[in-house]
Amino acid sequence: MSAVTAEVREAVVKRRGHPSSHGEARFGFAMIGLSVLFVAIFTAIPIVASLGLSFFSWDVISTPEYVGLENYRRLFTDGPVLKSFGVTLGMALAIVVLQLTIGLGLAVLVNQRKLVWVRTLFRTAFYLPLLASTAAVSIFMGYLFDYKFGVVNYYLSLLGISNVPWLTSGFGAAATIVLIAVWQQIGFTFVLFVASLMSVPTDVLEAAQIDGAGAFRTLFRIKIPLISPTILFAAVVALINAMQLFDQPYIMTKGGPGSATTTVTIQMYQKGFQNLQFGYGSAIAIVLLVAILVITGLQFLAARKLVFYQ
């Protein structure tokens, strides 16, 4: 028996006999169990409950009535609800594209700063809005972008620019909400990209430099392909979040003007909690879930060609 084999055997015996190994395993399972329990109670069960409820007509007060697929049939002929899917998709795509491009751009710029304190300062500054309550931010932004009394229009008027209907025209309201959502969420993608860019191997970058690649070519041919898994992750998370956009439009415009910013989640809330059509609201939630799953699936399909794993 070689010395190495003996050493391994000794280690195995030692480990098997270690009194804490079983306890460690139990602790591990307990930790996983807690997470599983949490996900089951707050995610899985509500999804199953919603699915069940979507086959009923229920106003909370009266007895639930089984209606089969009626809620789904109604959904696919309900103009305002279908429109809300279009509105949501449009706003979500705008949010994701802006969040990724601006986030990446800022990350590249900050990453070029050699001073650590400068990088830390920018990281903190861009991440800060993410920590603020979305409801509070929305109320605050509502005041800032008010057509007549808002600070933004006040300063524009000092420059001789007439009042902009930020929240009172269809396009204006949608664009303003998108910008605010991007401003608040950009810290997330920014921090991801900064961390990812810092992990790009320096020898690869040096090799590119020696080969005569400029900054632009290094970014698009070296850095972006190398951080493409992070970009995919950021895109998936950002899109899932954006498809559930609720707080900003609900607080700032109540889905208006008209239905210009009425997202699917607002429709769901209105149908369920305001119009007491919990079955129909659940059906909308389930269709939104399926839509998000499909879009996420498409993202992963596209990733097969666009994402490079080292």
């Binding site: 889905g255 208006g256 119009n275």
Partner: peptide, 19 residues
């Protein structure tokens, strides 16, 4: 059906004012 009325009224009024 007040709740549905209020929701529709809000939405249609803002639509009228903006359009």
């Amino acid at each position: 059906y007040y709740n549905a009325l209020a929701t529709a009224l809000n939405q249609r009024t803002t639509q009228a004012i903006s359009s």
